[in-house]
Each structure stands twice: as C-alpha cells, then as structure tokens.
Design a protein around this nucleic acid. Structure first.
Length: 276
DNA sequence: AGAAGTTCTCGGGCGC
DNA sequence: TGCGCCCGAGAACTTC
C-alpha cells in the first residue's frame, strides 16, 4: 500500500490522534508482525506505562516515539492504523492493539500480514535494521540534484529498479516511480549509467514534485489505503501513467503500455519515454 | 488465475 | 578465489 506520501499522511493523522496518550497494555494477536524483540510478551511488557510523544517518518517507516522507546512500524502492502474506543467491535485482521488509559486504543490492521514492528530503546533504532542503511529523504532540503546523482553513481541496473531500492533514495514505490519516470520522460529500463545530466535534473524534479503533490492531497488510494482517520487519498485522480495501460498518453495520445520491470508491473508511454 | 501499493532471501553470473 | 554487486525468482499472505 503505502509509499512516502501515504506514510507521511498516516504520520500526520496519528500525531493528531494519539500524541500524549499513555499505553495501559498491549495485545498481540499475530506474532509475526513483531520482529523485535523476539518475544511478543516482552514487546507488550516493555510498552506498558509509556507515553506517545510524537510520530515521525523515515522513508516508508513510521517512528512512533515514546518516552525512552521507539516503535518502528512498516505497513508494507496493506497495513493500516486506526483509533477506536475500547468498546468498539474488533474488526477482522486486527493484529496488534495498543490500549490507552483513557478508554481508546490504537489498532493495527493488516489483511496480508506483511507489516512489521520493531521496538528499540530511544536512539538505538538508526544503528540497526530496518532503519540502518536507508537512503536519502527525497523531500528533505538536502536532496539536491548533486546528492541524488552521487547516490546513484556507479549503479548498473535499470533506473526503475534503482529508484525502488530504499538504500539510495527512500520512499519511492511502484506508483510514484512510474509517475516520476513518466514526468521526466525517461524509460523505466534505461540503465542508470547512461543517464545524462539533463535526465538527472528532470528526474530529480519529477520525484520531488510528484511526491510533494501527492502528500498535499493525502496520498493515493487504489483499493485499501486509508489514513489514520479512515480517509482515502486523492492523488489517484491525478495519475498520468500508473494503472492507465491501453489508455491514451495525456501528452501524445499514444496508448500506454504495461510490462514487467524488476518483477513489478510497469506503465510507460512508448513515445514520451524513450531510452537515450 | 493472477495480480496487488513491499521487502527479504536465495542462487547464479559478472567484474575486479 | 573472494568479494561486491546485480538480477530474477520465489517467498511471506489474503482478497478480488
């Protein structure tokens, strides 16, 4: 489900909904979600009595900051958070519940069960997986064309595969990579080593503008994504290439094609996106 | 039936 | 030979 704009939106809504709440106890219904510590009872025990101070984002990960602890959460394909009253019926696929001392609770639902949670002592989270070795934040001030180019320097793969690799630039997934490559006029299979300076500039601009515009409208909802308040994103209405196979390109009218690149469904315009 | 917004691991290949 | 890097395939799971 979520790429950077969706996770950013979840972060914002969680900050409105759970900041300052104190955890009374934690229920784990599906052990595989909890990656750290190994023991889910220990995971639940460690969180008791702690207060949520803030929610931040690193790439596609949420960092839920508590006093002395950090919960690192990845939604993978279909993970979602919601705040409920403790008396509300628990919906199917609810795997983790953080019960607060005010009669509300934060619930994590995940139909496909791919999501992960790692609990760390504050400050430890960046030294270890999954946050260690993540790439540049594309919406940070420091994400310049120069640094973007340096991050991709020496890579021999296709540009789409490299952009999806979170070790170089974080937050870009299958929707925004196709949208960004279309906007920059670059074919998804062009090798990084052959990109011109002009293409790096165009791609940098396309990534930043596409992600920014998506954040502004709350991300994209294809089928399941909602923010922490159950609201859908709106950016899917602005897709120019993703999911538009066999429809005319908005620029030239040529029918958009769909192939597989790096194992992922890939949409592109065969006229606007040529390999240079 | 096959694909879905993600990422990890594995085996194999290449270049230095 | 060893290492690093890269690729593709398959895996994790449920729903449509």
């Amino acid at each position: 489900m979520p790429e950077l704009p969706e996770v950013e939106t979840v972060k914002n809504t969680l900050n409105q909904l759970v900041k300052g709440k104190v955890i009374d106890h934690v229920t784990v219904n599906l052990a595989r979600i909890i990656q750290r510590p190994d023991d889910i009872d220990q995971f639940a025990f460690l969180l008791v009595g702690h207060t949520i101070l803030d929610v931040e984002r690193r790439g596609k990960f949420l960092r839920i900051l508590l006093d002395g602890l950090v919960l690192v959460s990845h939604l993978r394909m279909e993970g979602r958070y919601g705040v409920y009253k403790s008396t509300d019926p628990v919906e199917k696929h609810t795997h983790v519940i953080f019960h607060f001392n005010d009669g509300t609770e934060l619930r994590y639902k995940d139909v496909r069960q791919f999501g992960t949670m790692h609990l760390f002592q504050s400050g430890e989270e960046f030294k270890l997986p999954p946050l260690a070795k993540l790439g540049l934040e594309p919406l940070d001030q420091g994400f310049t064309v120069q640094r973007f180019k340096e991050a991709l320097q020496g890579k021999k793969s296709k540009i789409k595969a490299v952009l999806l690799n979170q070790a170089y630039v974080v937050g870009i997934g299958n929707i925004y990579v196709d949208e960004s490559l279309f906007k920059a006029g670059i074919h998804p299979e062009q090798l990084v080593s052959t990109l011109t300076d002009e293409q790096f500039h165009a791609l940098h601009h396309a990534i930043v503008s596409t992600l920014s515009e998506a954040v502004e409208v709350g991300g994209s909802t294809i089928k399941s994504y909602v923010n922490g308040q159950g609201e859908m994103g709106m950016f899917q209405h602005q897709f120019k290439i993703y999911g538009r196979q066999n429809k005319p390109c908005v620029t030239c009218g040529t029918l958009i094609e769909k192939t597989v690149v790096g194992g992922r469904g890939t949409h592109f315009c065969p006229v606007c996106q040529t390999i240079k």
